[in-house]
Protein backbone atom coordinates (compact mmCIF):
# COMPACT_ATOMS: atom_id res chain seq x y z
CA UNK A 1 0.00 0.00 0.00
CA UNK A 2 1.44 3.34 -0.97
CA UNK A 3 2.14 5.87 1.74
CA UNK A 4 -0.49 8.34 0.57
CA UNK A 5 -3.30 5.75 0.59
CA UNK A 6 -2.28 4.72 4.07
CA UNK A 7 -2.39 8.31 5.33
CA UNK A 8 -5.81 8.94 3.82
CA UNK A 9 -7.12 5.64 5.10
CA UNK A 10 -5.85 6.07 8.68
CA UNK A 11 -7.10 9.66 8.94
CA UNK A 12 -10.51 8.70 7.55
CA UNK A 13 -10.84 5.81 9.96
CA UNK A 14 -9.85 8.02 12.91
CA UNK A 15 -12.30 10.73 11.86
CA UNK A 16 -15.06 8.13 11.41
CA UNK A 17 -14.48 6.52 14.80
CA UNK A 18 -14.34 9.98 16.42
CA UNK A 19 -17.63 11.09 14.94
CA UNK A 20 -19.26 7.81 15.91
CA UNK A 21 -18.04 8.25 19.49
CA UNK A 22 -19.31 11.85 19.60
CA UNK A 23 -22.69 10.96 18.14
CA UNK A 24 -23.24 8.20 20.66
CA UNK A 25 -22.12 10.39 23.58
CA UNK A 26 -24.49 13.11 22.43
CA UNK A 27 -27.33 10.66 21.96
CA UNK A 28 -26.84 8.80 25.24
CA UNK A 29 -26.44 11.88 27.42
CA UNK A 30 -29.08 14.09 25.80
CA UNK A 31 -31.80 13.17 28.34
CA UNK A 32 -29.48 14.11 31.24
CA UNK A 33 -28.57 17.42 29.60
CA UNK A 34 -32.27 18.19 29.11
CA UNK A 35 -32.90 17.41 32.75
CA UNK A 36 -30.10 19.69 33.91
CA UNK A 37 -31.16 22.51 31.59
CA UNK A 38 -34.72 22.20 32.86
CA UNK A 39 -33.56 22.32 36.45
CA UNK A 40 -31.04 25.14 36.26
CA UNK A 41 -32.40 27.28 33.42
CA UNK A 42 -36.16 26.77 33.41
CA UNK A 43 -36.46 25.68 37.05
CA UNK A 44 -36.36 29.14 38.70
CA UNK A 45 -38.98 30.56 36.30
CA UNK A 46 -41.24 27.55 36.83
CA UNK A 47 -40.92 27.69 40.60
CA UNK A 48 -42.08 31.32 40.58
CA UNK A 49 -44.95 30.69 38.15
CA UNK A 50 -46.36 27.68 39.96
CA UNK A 51 -45.35 28.73 43.47
CA UNK A 52 -43.93 25.28 44.15
CA UNK A 53 -40.35 23.99 44.29
CA UNK A 54 -39.03 23.36 40.78
CA UNK A 55 -38.36 19.66 41.50
CA UNK A 56 -42.08 19.00 41.81
CA UNK A 57 -43.09 20.45 38.46
CA UNK A 58 -40.11 19.55 36.28
CA UNK A 59 -41.46 16.04 35.72
CA UNK A 60 -44.80 17.41 34.51
CA UNK A 61 -43.57 18.16 31.03
CA UNK A 62 -44.85 17.48 27.56
CA UNK A 63 -43.19 18.57 24.36
CA UNK A 64 -45.50 19.62 21.56
CA UNK A 65 -44.31 19.82 17.97
CA UNK A 66 -45.19 23.22 16.59
CA UNK A 67 -44.19 24.52 13.18
CA UNK A 68 -40.53 23.62 12.70
CA UNK A 69 -39.66 23.45 16.39
CA UNK A 70 -40.86 21.96 19.63
CA UNK A 71 -42.52 23.78 22.50
CA UNK A 72 -42.02 22.50 26.04
CA UNK A 73 -45.18 22.77 28.13
CA UNK A 74 -45.19 22.24 31.89
CA UNK A 75 -48.44 21.65 33.79
CA UNK A 76 -49.85 21.26 37.27
CA UNK A 77 -52.86 19.16 38.26
CA UNK A 78 -55.58 20.01 40.73
CA UNK A 79 -58.33 17.48 41.50
CA UNK A 80 -57.34 15.28 38.55
CA UNK A 81 -57.68 18.20 36.20
CA UNK A 82 -54.98 20.18 34.48
CA UNK A 83 -55.36 23.57 36.12
CA UNK A 84 -52.35 25.57 35.06
CA UNK A 85 -49.83 25.46 32.23
CA UNK A 86 -46.47 27.08 31.72
CA UNK A 87 -45.62 27.43 28.05
CA UNK A 88 -42.18 28.33 26.83
CA UNK A 89 -42.32 31.17 24.33
CA UNK A 90 -39.80 33.04 22.23
CA UNK A 91 -40.11 36.82 22.26
CA UNK A 92 -38.66 37.60 18.87
CA UNK A 93 -36.86 40.86 18.19
CA UNK A 94 -35.52 41.83 21.59
CA UNK A 95 -32.76 44.43 21.68
CA UNK A 96 -30.11 41.78 22.34
CA UNK A 97 -31.72 38.93 20.40
CA UNK A 98 -34.70 36.76 21.13
CA UNK A 99 -36.03 36.49 24.67
CA UNK A 100 -36.86 33.10 26.09
CA UNK A 101 -39.99 33.44 28.19
CA UNK A 102 -42.23 31.20 30.24
CA UNK A 103 -45.90 32.14 30.09
CA UNK A 104 -48.21 30.95 32.87
CA UNK A 105 -51.77 30.09 31.87
CA UNK A 106 -54.69 29.31 34.18
CA UNK A 107 -56.99 27.03 32.18
CA UNK A 108 -59.83 27.02 34.73
CA UNK A 109 -60.24 30.77 35.05
CA UNK A 110 -59.05 31.50 31.52
CA UNK A 111 -56.43 33.96 32.77
CA UNK A 112 -52.70 34.52 32.48
CA UNK A 113 -50.89 33.73 35.73
CA UNK A 114 -47.70 35.52 34.83
CA UNK A 115 -44.72 35.97 32.55
CA UNK A 116 -41.20 34.91 33.52
CA UNK A 117 -37.91 35.26 31.70
CA UNK A 118 -35.91 32.09 31.22
CA UNK A 119 -32.98 33.72 29.49
CA UNK A 120 -32.31 36.97 27.68
CA UNK A 121 -29.39 39.17 26.69
CA UNK A 122 -30.95 42.61 27.08
CA UNK A 123 -28.95 45.62 28.30
CA UNK A 124 -28.66 45.58 32.10
CA UNK A 125 -30.55 48.50 33.60
CA UNK A 126 -32.68 49.04 30.49
CA UNK A 127 -34.17 46.00 28.79
CA UNK A 128 -32.68 43.88 31.57
CA UNK A 129 -35.35 45.31 33.84
CA UNK A 130 -37.71 42.82 32.22
CA UNK A 131 -36.70 40.60 35.14
CA UNK A 132 -38.21 43.04 37.63
CA UNK A 133 -41.33 41.98 39.43
CA UNK A 134 -43.04 45.33 38.84
CA UNK A 135 -43.03 44.92 35.10
CA UNK A 136 -43.92 41.25 34.98
CA UNK A 137 -46.72 41.66 37.52
CA UNK A 138 -48.83 43.36 34.84
CA UNK A 139 -49.38 40.01 33.14
CA UNK A 140 -51.16 38.49 36.10
CA UNK A 141 -54.91 38.10 35.60
CA UNK A 142 -55.08 39.18 31.97
CA UNK A 143 -57.64 37.42 29.84
CA UNK A 144 -56.53 34.67 27.46
CA UNK A 145 -58.87 35.83 24.73
CA UNK A 146 -57.31 39.21 24.08
CA UNK A 147 -53.83 39.76 22.73
CA UNK A 148 -51.42 41.40 25.16
CA UNK A 149 -50.05 44.78 24.07
CA UNK A 150 -48.15 47.73 25.48
CA UNK A 151 -49.94 51.03 26.09
CA UNK A 152 -48.30 52.61 23.05
CA UNK A 153 -49.88 49.90 20.94
CA UNK A 154 -53.27 50.32 22.58
CA UNK A 155 -52.90 47.67 25.26
CA UNK A 156 -52.62 47.65 29.03
CA UNK A 157 -48.96 46.88 29.65
CA UNK A 158 -46.82 49.82 30.71
CA UNK A 159 -43.59 49.27 28.82
CA UNK A 160 -40.20 49.53 30.51
CA UNK A 161 -39.10 53.13 30.03
CA UNK A 162 -36.24 53.33 27.57
CA UNK A 163 -36.75 49.75 26.45
CA UNK A 164 -39.89 49.60 24.34
CA UNK A 165 -38.20 47.11 22.01
CA UNK A 166 -37.80 44.68 24.90
CA UNK A 167 -41.32 45.29 26.17
CA UNK A 168 -42.78 44.65 22.74
CA UNK A 169 -40.69 41.49 22.33
CA UNK A 170 -42.21 40.27 25.60
CA UNK A 171 -45.78 40.96 24.47
CA UNK A 172 -45.05 39.39 21.09
CA UNK A 173 -43.77 36.25 22.82
CA UNK A 174 -46.85 36.16 25.04
CA UNK A 175 -49.18 36.46 22.08
CA UNK A 176 -47.34 33.68 20.27
CA UNK A 177 -47.80 31.47 23.33
CA UNK A 178 -51.50 32.41 23.57
CA UNK A 179 -52.03 31.57 19.90
CA UNK A 180 -50.19 28.32 20.41
CA UNK A 181 -52.35 27.31 23.37
CA UNK A 182 -55.55 28.38 21.64
CA UNK A 183 -54.72 26.30 18.58
CA UNK A 184 -53.34 23.27 20.39
CA UNK A 185 -55.35 23.09 23.60
CA UNK A 186 -56.89 19.69 22.83
CA UNK A 187 -53.55 18.30 21.71
CA UNK A 188 -51.80 19.50 24.87
CA UNK A 189 -54.47 18.02 27.13
CA UNK A 190 -54.39 14.77 25.18
CA UNK A 191 -50.60 14.60 25.50
CA UNK A 192 -50.84 15.21 29.24
CA UNK A 193 -53.56 12.58 29.64
CA UNK A 194 -51.37 10.15 27.73
CA UNK A 195 -48.44 10.46 30.16
Amino acid sequence: MSEITRMVLVLSVIAGVCSAALTSANYLLAPYIDQQTDFYVRGPALARLFDTPAEEVLGNKVVIAHGTGEVPVFFIMEDDQVSRLAVEAVGTGGYGGDLLLMIGIDLINNRLTGMETVSHSETPGLGGRIEEEGFRRQWRGLSLDQPVATTTEGGTIDGISGASVTSQAATRGTNAALDFVRGNRELILAEIAGL
Binding site: A21, L22, A25, N26, L29, Y32, I33, Q36, T37, F39, Y40
Partner: peptide, 11 residues
Protein backbone atom coordinates in the same frame (compact mmCIF):
# COMPACT_ATOMS: atom_id res chain seq x y z
CA UNK B 1 -17.15 14.19 25.18
CA UNK B 2 -15.86 15.72 28.43
CA UNK B 3 -17.89 18.84 27.65
CA UNK B 4 -21.07 16.81 27.06
CA UNK B 5 -20.51 14.85 30.27
CA UNK B 6 -20.00 18.07 32.23
CA UNK B 7 -23.19 19.56 30.80
CA UNK B 8 -25.07 16.41 31.74
CA UNK B 9 -23.81 16.06 35.30
CA UNK B 10 -22.09 19.30 36.41
CA UNK B 11 -24.21 21.91 34.71
Amino acid sequence: IVEIVMKAFFF
